Simulated scan of single mutants.
Amino acid sequence: MSEKYLIFGATGSIGSSLAEQLVNSGNLVHLVGRSESETKNVSEKLGCAFTIADVLQDGFVDKVKNDISDVKGIAYCVGSIDLKPLRMVSEQDFNKCMKLNLYSAVEVIKGYQDNLKKNKGSVVLFSTVAAQRGFTNHAIIASTKAAVEGLTVSLAAEFAPNIRVNCIAPSLTNSKIAEPMLKNKALADGIAKAHPLKRLGEGKDSASLAKFLITDDSSWVTGQIIAVDGGRSKLS
C-alpha cells in the first residue's frame, strides 16, 4: 500500500533525491518549495503534487495543510550554510538561521502532530557534521543545527510510541547552497580530501538514509542523530 509523504525543501539535492526514491518505491509524495519554477520541474519529473511556500513567512504551514492534511511522514530538508567569523555575527544572523532551520521545523511538526500520531508516522530532520565537530566560522549554523539535534531527541521522547523522530547530520554535499564554496575547484578538492572517503557527499547519500528513516523500514528507530559524512566526524 502506498503512503503519503511530505517533503520540505524539495528542490534541494537531498529533498529531490528523497522524493525520487520514495516515488520509485510506489509512494505518494507532496513537495514543498520556495521557487515555483524549480518545484514545478521536480513535480513534472516525478508526477508529484506540490505547494509553493516560504518557511520564513508566517502562515506557511496552513498554506501547505490546505493542500495536504494527511501524511505518514515528514522530511524537513531545509538548510543553510551561514559562515562568518564571530566578530561579524549579528543577532539578526542567528535569528534568521534559527527561523529557517529550527522554528519553522517546529511549526511544521506542531501543525501535523495529531495527524502523524494517528498514522504512527515519522519525522526526519537535518543537522550538520559541524554541530558536533568544530569548524572555523561555523558559529551560526553549528549552534542552530545543534538545537535541531536537541529538538530531535526531546520530541522522540515526547512523541513515543506514536511518532518517531530522527535526524541526519551530513557533511558538505554537492548542492545549490554549497555552490558558492564548491565553484572554487581547489577549495572543493581540499574539502573532499578532508573526508576519509575522499569525496564530497551527493544528495542521494543522505536521501537514501532519509527514505529508510521516514518509512516503516525503520520502525524500531527513533531519537537518533546519524552522520552521513564520509567518516569526517569520527575518523579525521
Rank of each mutant, 00 (worst) to 15 (best):
E20Y: 05
F94G: 01
T173F: 03
M88N: 15
N24K: 15
S233E: 02
L209R: 09
S122K: 01
G59M: 07
A210M: 09
T144R: 00
C97W: 00
I52F: 03
G121L: 00
L182C: 09
P170Q: 07
E202M: 14
R164L: 04
N174K: 15
S236M: 09
T173I: 11
S233L: 05
T128C: 02
D229S: 01
V123S: 04
V23C: 12
P85S: 14
A157R: 15
N27V: 07
S154K: 08
S154C: 10
E91Y: 12
G47L: 09
E44M: 13
F8N: 05
W220F: 15
S80V: 08
G134Q: 08
S154L: 10
Q57K: 15
A210D: 04
K72C: 12
R164W: 03
Y76K: 07
K117N: 06
H195Q: 07
P170H: 08
T51G: 08
I7H: 02
G203D: 05
V61M: 10
N162R: 13
Q92F: 10
L182Y: 08
S104T: 03
D93L: 04
D205R: 04
T11R: 02
D82Q: 11
L187C: 07
V153T: 15
A53Q: 01
S43W: 05
S104G: 07
A169V: 02
A146W: 07
A146F: 10
H195V: 06
S175Q: 04
E179A: 15
S154Q: 12
S2M: 13
E36K: 14
A156I: 05
L151M: 13
S90I: 05
A210K: 03
N27A: 07
T173S: 09
D93Y: 03
K4W: 00
S171K: 01
I7A: 08
K204N: 11
V153Q: 13
A178F: 06
E20R: 15
D93K: 03
Q92S: 14
D58V: 13
A75W: 09
S16G: 09
F60C: 06
